[in-house]
Amino acid sequence: MISVLFVCLGNICRSPMAEAVMRHQVEEAELSTHIQVDSAGTGDWHIGHSPHEGTRQMLDQVRISYAGMKARQVEENDFTNFTYIVCMDENNERNVMAWKGAHDRTAEVLRFMSLLPEEPITDVPDPYYTGNFDEVYRLVSEGCKQLLAKIVREHHLSV
């Protein structure tokens, strides 16, 4: 099973949006038996909370389910349980890499915006502060398409 973990700070805005969008794209590609998707935060402020209202409204608007999603914090076993850990910004990537570097871990860590090299930004903006959930959805939707293509290519899956 190929597994993807999206990581942001609180796990209520960006990473759960990416989780929901990626799950939707995986289902549409009929690859749910091959690819598992989750999300987590580096911080612990929102553990157990549902996605942010802005994330829920955006996903409702595009008819993508977030049913049952609750915020959680990155755990040590995530580094061996996931194939890919995709960080939404530089700070979270730095935190994840420091944690990963403390032990021998197998997960490939990458920054989300590396999937969209044509974009002029290197971090997915945090809509918790910007309020721009539309822009985050645009980036997440396109980035997840690129990530899915990468997974299909690297793991020789049929779509």
Rank of each mutant, 00 (worst) to 15 (best):
L115R: 02
V21T: 06
R72E: 05
R111Q: 14
R94L: 15
E142I: 08
R23I: 02
E28D: 14
W99Y: 12
S32K: 15
A18L: 02
E135A: 10
A40F: 05
L157W: 05
E28L: 14
T33Q: 14
A149D: 10
R72L: 13
D89E: 09
A40M: 08
N77M: 12
A20P: 11
L5T: 01
I85S: 00
H156F: 09
V159C: 12
S114A: 12
Q73P: 00
M88F: 10
L148V: 08
E135G: 06
A98T: 15
L147Q: 00
R14H: 08
V86M: 06
T83I: 03
M22L: 11
K145S: 14
H46C: 03
K100C: 07
K70L: 15
R94S: 15
A149S: 11
M97W: 12
T33K: 15
P120L: 09
V109K: 04
F82Q: 04
K150N: 10
A102C: 13
E118K: 12
E93I: 02
V136F: 07
P51R: 04
V86W: 00
A18C: 09
I2M: 04
E142W: 03
N95I: 08
H103I: 13
E108P: 02
D104I: 13
V96E: 04
W45C: 04
E75Q: 13
S15V: 03
T80W: 07
H103F: 14
V4I: 13
I85A: 01
H24M: 13
V152N: 02
P117S: 13
S15H: 02
E76P: 00
E119K: 11
F82H: 05
